[in-house]
Nucleic acid binder design. Structure first.
Length: 456
RNA sequence: GGCGCUAUCGUCUAGGGGUUAGGACGUCAGAUUCUCAAUCUGAAAACCCGGGUUCGAUUCCCGGUAGCGCUACCA
């Protein structure tokens, strides 16, 4: 790639993903240089050789001319391909025009024949030369074309297997033709099916996560992503195993179990796998917290729940909240968690449709009244004490289970559902003890406010 | 338009001339829980269509259809 920062990013993403290489632009190696831009002379040298051997020739056709011919072919219902006009040019004539300052591209002569190779996933594959025009090897600006550069590089770097997307199937004959022209042994080819989006069109930016950096930002673990991608087109010989360790993957994988049909990307399954890895992928509790902590802190500060300076102070609280997120396998979202802890509005709770009946219903009111008396003196509540108070309210009122806890949940959290109160109450209590720019209300405080709002 | 690739539950897939067509995600139901999740148990859910070959095709062959790709002085 042209810009250094793109290269750095690319390399870094690949490393994050867990892909390692023995040689490359960042490590050097026996076949350096590894950047296309630094291999110019090599490409030029081989192109000259090809011209000398009359396998290639200079082409002076203009882009407009080419485009016009293409349109003509299209209109006539023919496969559009280069006519081969400049093939007939005498070499001396071509040389004269170049010295005269005309720019020319270099094209390979395609001989009429069929190109056949044994594709490692598709099996025997044949493409007739009739559908391919003489491909450009070197563009008129001197840059090598993809189909040319890869052949030179792959051969010189002693590549044995070319494993790539099946959108390259139609490039393969052009490359094979080049190997033939050079008299080089071609590598083995394996063409993998395309990954499609959920709508079965080719995966692209608008489908969301398509770059490694994006998966990383979404907290996808590299190991989970590797495993998921492996499953897109390959299956374990037993037909059942889906979770594989790195060692199993490398040991079990073989190209002959790769299937040919295009697969559509299923984020839900990736997420499931990711949680499997999060739960049992060798990460300890601290490691799991680490995956989400940073993102959660960023959410809290950017939405002004916390000031940047306060983060240190509330570290324990944050971990407790991230823990809830973890416990529910991510179903408790950042925004819900933040709202639950930081935004409590008794007035709204007493009036909102879903929660109003708690403020108005006879049974909930009785339960809450009794409960508030029990804990009103408690400055620092523990879940234990909360539980005890609930128990004695149960004895007094005879209400239990849902009748007892639903009003408490609503009055305390302001929501009809959410994480266990056992997890939430310690957060409220600890939060209330800290003095924050945006204070967290204690359980007792919440109940007092609710009591006032509901006129208990 | 031409050429090519592909076709099993909604999705990823296993399988293969005779099977109750297997697994996983998701979905739904039940259990559990103060609730929602999580968890556990269970259920529904598929061989693209037409012809041929065959005693028998979802499986093999041909055709169609659909999806995707290529059709560049992009990679």
């Amino acid at each position: 790639r042209s810009e250094a920062r793109f290269e750095t990013q690319l390399l870094e993403d690949l490393h994050w993903f867990g892909l390692n290489w023995d040689e490359g632009p960042d490590k050097g190696g026996p076949f350096a240089p590894y950047r296309q831009s630094e291999r110019h002379e090599i490409y030029t040298k081989y192109a000259t050789q090809l011209i000398d051997q009359e396998h290639a020739y200079h082409c002076f056709c203009s882009a407009e001319q080419l485009e016009a011919e293409r349109q003509e072919d299209l209109k006539a219902g023919r496969q559009p391909k280069y006519s081969g006009r400049c093939r007939k040019l005498l070499r001396v004539e071509a040389a004269r025009r170049i010295t005269a300052g005309e720019s020319a591209s270099i094209r390979l002569k395609i001989k009429p024949s069929a190109f056949t190779w044994h594709d490692l996933v598709h099996g025997p594959t044949t493409i007739s030369s009739e559908v391919i025009g003489d491909p450009i090897l070197v563009r008129s600006d001197g840059h090598p074309a993809y189909n040319y550069a890869v052949v030179i590089d792959d051969h010189l770097m002693e590549i044995t297997h070319v494993i790539r997307g099946d959108d390259h199937i139609s490039n393969t004959p052009r490359q094979l033709a080049l190997y033939q022209a050079f008299g080089w042994e071609p590598p083995q080819f394996a063409h993998l099916s395309t990954i499609l989006g959920p709508d079965r069109t080719r995966l692209s930016k608008r489908h969301g996560a398509t770059s490694l950096a994006e998966f990383r930002a979404r907290h996808i673990l590299p190991a989970a992503l590797r495993n998921y991608l492996l499953l897109l087109g390959w299956s374990h010989p037993d037909g059942k195993t889906e979770k594989l360790s790195q060692q199993e993957m490398t040991a079990m994988f073989s190209l002959d179990r790769v299937n040919k049909s295009p697969a559509s990307f299923d984020m839900a399954k990736l997420e499931w796998l990711n949680w499997e890895y999060l739960a049992s992928g060798g990460l300890d509790h601290e490691g799991r917290l680490n995956v989400f902590r940073e993102g959660f802190i960023a959410y809290l500060t950017s939405n002004h729940y916390l000031e940047t300076g306060e983060v240190e102070k509330v570290a324990g609280l944050i971990d407790a909240m991230v823990d809830i997120h973890l416990d529910s396998k991510g179903r408790t979202r950042d925004e819900d968690l933040a709202r639950l802890v930081f935004d409590y509005n008794a007035q709204a709770v007493a009036q909102a449709g879903e929660t109003r009946d708690v403020a108005e219903g006879e049974i909930p009111r009785a339960v809450l009244k009794a409960f508030i008396i029990k804990i009103s003196g408690e400055d620092s509540l523990t879940y234990e004490k909360f539980r005890q108070a609930a128990k004695s309210v149960q004895q007094e009122t005879g209400k239990k289970g849902r009748d007892l806890f639903h009003p408490l949940r609503v009055a305390v959290t302001g929501a009809v559902s959410g994480p266990e109160l056992e997890k939430l109450i310690p957060i409220f209590e600890e939060g209330a003890r800290l003095s924050l720019a945006r204070p967290i209300k204690s359980t007792a405080q919440r109940l007092r406010e609710f009591s006032a709002a509901a006129g208990l």
